[in-house]
Design a protein around this nucleic acid. Structure first.
Length: 958
RNA sequence: GCGGGAGUGGCGGAAUGGUAUACGCAUCAGUCUUAAAAACUGAGGAGGCAACUCAUACGGGUUCGACUCCCGUCUCCCGCACCA
């Protein structure tokens, strides 16, 4: 046993070394056995529900998981020590595509794959030493979980929040499924999961009416990051304006939406989306061919890469005309793909003088531009203007509205009132937000609990028949097509209404549905009367602090807010609300009161391999027969040798030339440098002068290391910058390995210390040494600081206590504000102070012991194992994690001696040690006594004195 | 184009309008060692022998005093992108 390995050292007994590999599993087992972190309802204590976004069980715990969870755990632990009853649960978002893709690839069932991964990750998560309450673990692919996911679908259906509709939807050809609008990202409209550009498909799919909540979703909880609020607000895209009814010449009403009703008199043409239902009717025979061609091309274009084309406007005249209801003017109707069928009414009035898009269109097709808003400082002319005028001015050419100012929406409001009075238009608000498409054509998800009956139509599965179980005996097709479609046992059923033969819906639900309510399932993961136990919900909800990545801003974080509001309207919170003190914040408005987004850990930049290549030149490429992998130093030396050799050859050639001898063609046959790029057998190296050389490695070329052993070409590393971690780049950091090497406490602390949590950044494998040293020092300063003989002086004692209390304050503030890095820095400083006092009489005093005790308490949230171990070793009762967080005493923390900082005319001139609490005149007297200050005052008259007593800052103005 | 965020040593990063560069990494020097590593001690923004001067992306401003507040410019990152 290493613990007994105590050696004599300078006549004293030296304690054993810090071995996290031993103490960490020991304490984890003890905490587990004691149920130390079980969280139970306790109305005598305030509750704190801390939550971190649940992981997908992809296989192994990633350093990113640690980065997200360890600091959250530290904060949850801090809240616990502050006296809160803390719930910090963990679970798995276990449905989803990777499991199914793995099934296809490895011929393992998604269920087998998923649950094996969960088993492994659970173990890895436990090694973190977090306060997760595993009794509350929830796994979204368990039937006892997805039964309720399906139940929510039924409730939403009953309440008119779920509907089935045929629509042109986004489809990922690689994932072989439809996607919600939120899950299509970027300019090239790619799939959020796999990056493949999506295509449009006309399909019948299930949607949730998230748009019903557009307005409410704009009201964000206060303690959410501004960034997320802004992203969601943009995503929802509210615009105010009016619907106005135009008519076609044939008399059909033609509804448009505009945010600028004050420009109605400037409409010189109309534009319909190519898919608009009136297009066929207004198109004249002469124009029909052109219109058909354009529609066909637009449809094709939306399937190809729409954004690859520049923003040049395209469109076609239909031949038809519309009547503007405000002035009875007859204006042409065009179609163009810049008008989207999915926004507003799929038709616009075009006011080229005051809208950039309409302006571009009008100029391209020679349509008239009529100014109806004149700016106050200049006069616009529709013929000559070069861009649309969108600023404020006064209305002109607009009948009795002429002269109305547009500022402060006055013109808009007055025109809308008039439109409403005339019955031609109506004030309206539109949103960019679309309903949430939740159908997925894949197997590994919760089946949508719906039945299609030839005689009764769409029939919901009765509640008592839930869950609709996923069949286990399925064949996976290499195409990714859902096997549910071909599984007779699943597919064929009887209609719950008429008892006749019917078929099940074979689509499953978007996995974002599972994660929209998991914070509720954690409360009672095995409760079977409802999705959650109302007793638990009444106490624990809502989540007090949520943490996770920003990438979910417009997906998960919108969906779960929608879910909460929809659940409220379906009455699902009723029982819980009834049990709750109405004076407490509501539990059914917002799921998470506060949110914090941590950043991401990126890959560590790496040098490429240094090599020397031998070969012959063919044009600009060196054809290589042999490569030797060398180190950087050797490479430098070799490059110099190579340069010297080249110089020598060149000099010899000069001599040859001078003598009139024939010059040998000097072909370089070696190249030395760092690999910066590698693509199969083509390698680019960079020499030390930063010139690059392209090498082509011949078939069968020898690649050897310095010792002459053959190495595969794949082992040649290329230079890597700061990039996202990925297996293919070889820059992934494995937390398991780090924990084995350094211990969980060190990994936890390093992740908290090395980055600003909100920013993240590239991994630095060297930096962890700082934390290793810190914990070793702590170990030694706690266990190996024998009392020094002698009376400690009062001043030194006060100084130590002051440092301790300043540290309490800094660590507490750091944890409050997610500034984990500064909190750890403060703890390191306290350690440094203690180390420097080790050989002074302070060591061993009561203040010393108090300092040690306090330091361990402050460390407990960050490094729970070493804190517990040392706590025990200094004879304190188990467990440190049941202690209160130290309270900082401002009186003790107050400085008694200051450095009086004296500036003359704002420039720092002297630092003078002085007692705290100097009066202004004392401070000035002290300053004037200083030769440094005297020199700068130089006999001048002091015009003004600024003295900041609490900072010890004096500024003399002369 | 619109919106949001950020620019501080070689690097990660600290700084309620009041001592810029805490804490740590790396570096350099010294101690120990046959040697190296580890560990320990110390140095360190730049320029200058020094007194000092100049430094928080750049240019202005407010102030006794600005990394911090205001105005303008540049660069980088992120989100949205024909949304009428």
């Amino acid at each position: 046993m290493i613990g007994s390995c105590i050696i004599a050292w300078r006549g004293r007994v030296m304690p054993d070394k810090y071995t996290p590999q031993e103490i960490e599993p020991k304490w984890q087992a003890r905490w587990e056995a004691d149920g130390l972190y079980r969280s139970r309802i306790d109305y005598s204590r305030p509750k704190h529900y801390a939550l971190t976004m649940l992981p997908y069980p992809s296989g192994d715990l990633h350093i990113g998981h640690w980065y997200a969870m360890a600091p959250s755990d530290a904060r949850a632990r801090y809240m616990r020590m502050r006296g809160y009853n803390v719930l910090f649960p963990m679970g798995f978002d276990a449905f989803g595509l990777p499991a199914e893709n793995a099934a296809i690839k490895n011929r393992t069932h998604p269920k087998t794959w998923t649950y094996a991964n969960i088993e492994r990750m659970r173990k890895q998560l436990r090694s973190m030493g977090a306060i997760f309450d595993w009794e509350r673990e929830a796994i979204s692919s368990d039937p006892e979980y997805y039964r309720w996911t399906q139940w929510f679908f039924l409730k939403f259906y009953e309440n008119g929040l779920a509907y089935r509709q045929r629509a042109a939807v986004d489809f990922c050809p690689s994932c072989n499924t439809t996607l919600a609008r939120e899950q299509v990202w970027g300019e090239d409209r790619h799939c959020e999961r796999c990056g493949t550009p999506v295509i449009k498909k006309e399909l019948e799919q299930w949607f949730f009416r998230i748009t019903n909540y557009a307005e409410e979703l704009l009201q964000h909880p206060e303690k959410w990051p501004e960034k997320v609020k802004v992203m969601q607000t943009n995503w929802i895209g509210r615009s105010e304006g009016a619907y106005v009814t135009f008519h076609t010449e044939q008399g059909d009403p033609l509804l448009i939406f505009t945010t600028r009703p004050d420009t109605l008199w400037g409409a010189t043409f109309m534009v319909l989306a190519p898919e608009h239902p009136l297009v066929q009717k207004v198109t004249t025979d002469e124009q029909r061919a052109a219109v058909e061609a354009y529609i066909a091309q637009a449809a094709r274009q939306s399937e190809i890469d729409r954004t690859a084309t520049d923003k040049e406007k395209t469109g076609v005249f239909t031949g038809g005309y519309a009547i503007n209801p405000v002035n009875q003017e007859r204006i042409p109707i065009w179609i163009a793909d810049y008008v989207l069928m999915t926004y507003g009414s799929g038709a616009i009035m075009a006011v080229p003088a005051h809208d950039e898009r309409d302006f571009a269109f009008a100029r391209k097709f020679g349509l008239p531009v009529r100014v109806v808003i004149q700016p106050l400082d200049s006069a616009l002319d529709g013929e000559t203007m070069t861009e649309a005028f969108v600023g404020d001015g006064v209305m002109v050419n607009s009948a009795h509205f002429d002269g109305t100012p547009t500022a402060n929406r006055e013109a808009i409001n007055r025109v809308i009132e008039w439109l409403e009075a005339q019955g031609i238009g109506k004030r309206a608000v539109t949103y960019r937000l679309r309903d949430w498409l939740i159908s997925r054509q894949r197997y590994w998800g919760a089946p949508i609990p719906m039945i299609y009956c030839p005689s009764c139509g769409i029939v919901p599965v009765p509640e008592d028949q839930l869950p609709v179980l996923l069949p286990d005996d399925v064949e996976f097709m290499p195409t990714g097509e859902s096997p549910l479609k071909y599984h007779a046992g699943f597919l064929n059923t009887t209609c719950p209404k008429c008892g006749g033969k019917a078929q099940r819906e074979t689509d499953t639900m978007d996995t974002f549905m599972c994660s929209s309510w998991y914070q509720l399932r954690y409360l009672s993961p095995h409760y079977d009367k409802a999705p959650f136990d109302p007793e638990e919900a009444a106490y624990w909800l809502p989540v007090d602090q949520y943490t996770g990545g920003i990438e979910h801003a417009t997906m998960h974080l919108m969906y779960t807010r929608f879910f909460t509001k929809a659940m409220r309207d379906c009455g699902i919170y009723k029982d819980a609300v009834a049990r709750r003190d109405p004076k407490l914040p509501p539990i059914d408005h917002e799921p998470m009161l506060a949110l914090y987004n941590q950043g991401m850990i990126l890959g560590e930049p790496m040098d490429g391999s240094y090599i020397v290549a031998f070969g012959t030149w063919h044009d600009e490429t060196l054809h290589v027969r042999k490569i030797v992998v060398i180190d950087e130093e050797t490479a430098k030396v070799m490059q110099q040798a190579e340069n010297t050799a080249n110089d020598l050859i060149s000099s010899l050639n000069d001599v040859a030339r001078a003598l009139g001898e024939p010059v040998e063609d000097s072909r370089m046959t070696t190249a030395v440098g760092e690999i910066v790029k590698r693509n199969d057998n083509v390698i680019v190296i960079e020499r030390f002068d930063e010139t690059q050389v392209t090498l082509e490695v011949a078939e069968g070329a020898a690649i050897v290391d310095k010792a002459g052993n053959a190495v595969p070409i794949e082992s040649l590393r290329y230079r890597l910058g700061v990039e996202k971690m990925s297996k293919s780049k070889g820059n992934v950091v494995a937390p398991d390995q780090l924990v084995a090497q350094y211990g969980a406490d060190t990994v936890r602390a390093y992740l908290m210390f090395a980055f600003r949590w909100e920013s993240g950044g590239p991994w630095d494998s060297q930096g962890i040494q700082g934390v290793v040293r810190w914990l070793n020092d702590v170990w030694s300063v706690v266990l190996d600081s024998p009392p020094v003989q002698g009376e400690p002086d009062e001043k030194a004692i006060r100084a130590l206590r002051r440092k301790v209390h300043q540290t309490i304050q800094r660590v507490g503030e750091g944890l409050e504000t997610f500034s984990f890095n500064t909190a750890v820095a403060a703890l390191m400083e306290l350690k440094n102070t203690l180390m420097s006092l080790r050989k002074t009489p302070v060591c061993g005093s009561a203040a010393w012991h108090e300092a040690i005790r306090t330091m361990l308490l402050l460390m407990a949230p960050f490094t729970p194992h070493i804190a517990e171990e040392l706590w025990e070793r200094i004879g304190e009762p188990y467990s440190i994690h049941n202690q209160s967080f130290p309270v900082y005493d401002p009186e003790v923390a107050k400085v008694e001696e200051i450095t009086l900082v004296v500036s003359v005319n704002g420039k720092l001139r002297a630092r003078i040690q002085a007692p705290a609490g100097l009066s202004e005149s004392e401070a000035v007297a002290l300053a004037l006594a200083s030769p440094d200050v005297q020199k700068h005052i130089n006999g001048g008259e002091i015009k003004k004195v600024i003295y900041v007593a609490e900072r010890g800052m004096l500024n003399l103005v002369i």
